[in-house]
Amino acid sequence: MGNNSVIRCENISFQYTEGSTLFSDVSLSINPGGFYLVRGPSGSGKSSFLRLMNRLEEPSQGTLYFKGIPFSEMTAPELRRQVLYIQQTPIVTDGSVKDNLLMPFTFKNNRTLPLPDDSHLRGVLDEFSMEMIPLDKQARNLSVGQQQRLCLIRGLLLSPSVILLDEPTSSLDDESSLIVENMAESLCLNAGKTIIMISHRGFRPHTIKPTIIEVKDGRLTVLPQE
C-alpha cells in the first residue's frame, strides 16, 4: 500500500442502513495525480464509496486517511475543500454566475482563501468553454450542461487536490458530456489533480490510462491499468 497515497482506505466497511452492508473490509490506495474510473452495477455502492472519501458518509468500520492523516483528525470542511465532490445533478443557487462562483468564499472556513477577481473568474470560465456566458447571467437560466461545468469550476476555485465526480454526465447530452469528460481529463493531465470518476457512458480518457476500481458483490477491486 503506497505511503505517498493521497487517500488511503484501511479495512473499511459501509452500511447504508442497519444490516444492509454495501461493502466490507476494503483496503485500497489512491495515488496523487491518478485517474480512476469507478465501475459496477447500479446499487453496488459506487456513490457511497465516493461519499465516504469526502466524508459525507461515515464507514461503519475501518479508517480513511488523507495524505496520511486520519479523516477523524481533520475537520470535515477542511477535508472537503481538499477532496471535492461533484454531485450527479448540478445544483446552482439563486443569483448570477458570479454569485455562484463566489458562494464558497462566503463560508467561514474559506475566508482565508484569496477571493478571485472578475478577470480570474472570466479566465476560468473561458478555459472551460463558457466564453459566451457573462458573469452576471442568472445561473438558473444556464443549460444543465453549463450548470454542471459551473459547479465544477466553483469547486475548482477552492484548489482541491482530489476531485470526485459522481456520474457528472448522467443528465447531460452527448456534447455537454464530452466537454465535462474532457475537463476531467485535462484537470488530471495539466493541473495534476487526482480524479475519481463514476461514468456509465463507458467513458475512457484519450491520453491517460485510467485505473479501474470495480465495485461488485460487496467488494472493491482495483484492476490493473488497461
Binding site: 459525507l56 470542511p77 472537503r80 461533484i86 445544483i91 463560508f107
Partner: peptide, 13 residues
C-alpha cells in the same frame, strides 16, 4: 438534501 450537501462539499459547516 442535495443543496445542503453541495454547500457542505464546498466547505460550509
Amino acid at each position: 438534501r442535495g443543496e445542503i450537501e453541495m454547500k457542505l462539499c464546498l466547505g460550509a459547516d
